[in-house]
């Protein structure tokens, strides 16, 4: 029973910290909207156990000029893949 968590605010929101408190090892996190600011600096992206897959939404990165800064740990995806991920996981939990 894995879960896709979406996070749509910048690191200042502490949404990621909240999410990490209750995440399961086989879950995934997708950064969307201002959440993509997590993706380009180690200080914004605390160590998360390796089994948790990390994704970032390409459209939001393009808009914010952060695509080229994105760390390797984060897989860049488009909205079509966002829909697919929603199907591949048992549920979607949105943090906003």
């Amino acid at each position: 029973m894995s879960c896709l968590h979406t996070i749509n605010r910048s690191p200042d929101s502490k949404l990621l910290e909240s999410c990490l408190k209750v995440i399961n090892a086989d879950d995934a996190i997708l950064f969307i909207e201002d959440g993509v600011y997590h993706c380009f600096s180690l200080s914004n992206l605390p160590s998360i156990i390796e089994t948790v897959k990390l994704y970032g939404l390409r459209e939001d990165m393009l808009a914010r000029a952060t695509l080229s800064k994105t760390m390797d740990r984060v897989e860049v995806i488009d909205t079509a893949r966002f829909v697919e991920l929603s199907c591949e996981h048992d549920k979607v939990v949105s943090w906003f």
């Binding site: 879960c3 408190k21 209750v22 399961n24 549920k91 939990v93 949105s94 906003f96």
Partner: peptide, 14 residues
Amino acid sequence: VSKLIENSDTVFNL
């Protein structure tokens, strides 16, 4: 809390 989320069909989070 993780367990509750894991065992739920739907989660509303706000």
